[in-house]
Design a protein around this nucleic acid. Structure first.
Lengths: 127, 127
DNA sequence: TTGCTGTATATAGCTGATATACACAGTATA
DNA sequence: TATACTGTGTATATCAGCTATATACAGCAA
């Protein structure tokens, strides 16, 4: 799992950590009951505070993707992946619709939007 | 000009005020050198603090859309509308591309995106 | 005990939002 | 003319929430 945190970015760091781990779990890179790096270790690796990694872990635990045993460590749960994936997809679609509606409101023609999509998908199929 | 402010929304209130006024200027509802409502009056109408409306006016002044005369009031400037409109359009397109790329990363097929766009544009052409 | 783990507390900085007091411009009026 | 009044924008001090931190506390196991 290779995380890259941008301290100056628009997204909070704990959220970047969270999203990176979530992605690793959802695509199977991290498997159920696997031991996660400790909050300290991960914090050291990413050059952030323990609290930041702890916050990411807490959020992931609330979403049911990992579980924690005090004194032992944090483990991958990953038994409701489908639900999480579906939510992620729906959120992404909703964001997309919102931006598309915004363009419509600005009188951008439908063809322009489709053209942009073709540019994105046409460029490199496998990335 | 009818503004609706949602205090519980995700967007800051001063930004909602700003966007609403900007839209009114860009679509010609507010014309150049027209007197704007005073920060106090607008604050009372919207049930927000003066500081909030003042912040919106300051931002709009920085964008060159209005100008202020202390003791007299705030007036519509609107002589660089084209540049502002172009920026607005580019920003909206960039947002749209970002969300589309996100969907591609989630393995959503191109056809699904186009389908969503057609739904949005097909629904009601003139809204 | 030692060394790992997660957890709780107190603190600092930034941002959104507010109330209140201040300063400027025009106008009515003495 | 001079002054007071009422409208305008502006500055200061303050509060609440969120992000991020350091540091100290508590649990588990060799």
């Amino acid at each position: 799992m290779n995380l890259f945190i941008n301290a100056a970015g628009n997204k909070p760091m704990y959220e970047q950590v969270k999203d990176g781990i979530k992605e690793a779990i959802l695509n199977g890179e991290l498997k159920a009951h696997q031991l996660m790096p400790s909050v300290r270790q991960l914090a050291a690796d990413l050059n952030v505070s323990m609290i930041t990694t702890k916050r990411a872990y807490s959020d992931l635990e609330n979403e049911g993707l990992i579980y924690t045993v005090a004194g032992k460590g944090t483990f991958v749960k990953a038994d409701n992946i489908e639900a999480v994936q579906e939510k992620q997809l729906n959120d992404a679609l909703e964001d997309f619709r919102e931006k598309a509606e915004n363009l419509k409101k600005l009188s951008v023609p439908q063809e322009k939007l489709i053209e942009e999509i073709e540019k994105i998908y046409g460029g490199n199929e496998n990335e």
